Amino acid sequence: MATFTLTCIGDDRPGLVSDLSAPIHAHGASWNRSQMARLGGKFAGILLLDVPDAKADDLVAALSALDDVGLHVTLERTDVPVNEPALRINLELLGADRAGIVAEISAALAGRGVSIEELVTDVREAPMAGGRLFEATAVLGASATTSTDDLRAMLEALADELMVEIHLSDATGPGPAASSSSA
């Protein structure tokens, strides 16, 4: 079985997911996991799929041909076993929108050897306060040797600098493990 990570982007229109799913189904592939959204008039997505080895090359060709209907598809074979992180931590962030929040948080996490497994962000109008709010939710992955107390302290200090609220919780259980407020 071959595993692929696929990205796609095209002008948003009815039928794009159907155009994408038809060759996946026709080649006996399994649509495993995906995240897709309309962003700035474009439809963009990422998905993980499995296909029988004997049909992998034909599927790649069929998906590449979707350029003809306005959907650009890129595939990367990802059969390589991945070491799963020992710790998973949910992160929620909310604060006034400004440039650099993701860059600073992601650099600090990378410096601690913590990966971002999932990231969803949005900017919305701030009710009653005016301005815009930036919000992010993420699932973080870390090794068993990662000190959650040190990670929490580092993120609390960074939250104070960025003037945002960050809440952490165990990804396997409910309830925040730590939080910090804006300064």
Rank of each mutant, 00 (worst) to 15 (best):
W31D: 06
S30T: 12
L94A: 09
V17N: 03
I46Q: 12
H72F: 13
S115L: 10
V114A: 08
D11N: 14
D67G: 09
L75G: 07
D19M: 05
A2S: 15
I105P: 10
L94D: 06
S115Y: 09
N83D: 14
A2I: 11
A99G: 09
D12C: 05
I116L: 10
V114P: 01
A65W: 04
D68N: 07
I24N: 04
A65G: 08
I9M: 13
D12T: 06
V69D: 04
I89G: 02
L47H: 03
S115T: 14
A61K: 15
V73T: 03
D53H: 07
V102E: 01
A44C: 11
A2Y: 14
L49Y: 06
L16M: 08
L87T: 03
A99Q: 14
D53C: 06
E117W: 11
W31S: 00
A61Q: 13
I24A: 00
R77T: 07
P23L: 04
W31E: 07
D53G: 05
A96G: 10
P81I: 00
H25Q: 14
F4E: 12
A54D: 12
A61E: 14
H72L: 12
G41P: 09
S34W: 02
A62W: 00
A108D: 14
L93R: 04
E76R: 15
N32I: 14
R88K: 12
L39H: 08
L59C: 04
L94C: 09
A56G: 01
G15P: 04
V60F: 03
E84Y: 11
G95C: 03
L119F: 10
D58I: 10
L75Q: 10
D68Q: 11
L71S: 02
L93W: 11
L87K: 13
V60S: 14
L66K: 03
D68W: 00
I116G: 00
P81N: 05
R33S: 15
G28I: 06
E92N: 15
D50K: 09
V17A: 10
L16G: 06
A54I: 02
Q35G: 13
P52D: 11
N83V: 14
R112F: 07
A103F: 10
T74C: 12
L119G: 01
E104Q: 15
A22M: 08
L59S: 03
A44Y: 05
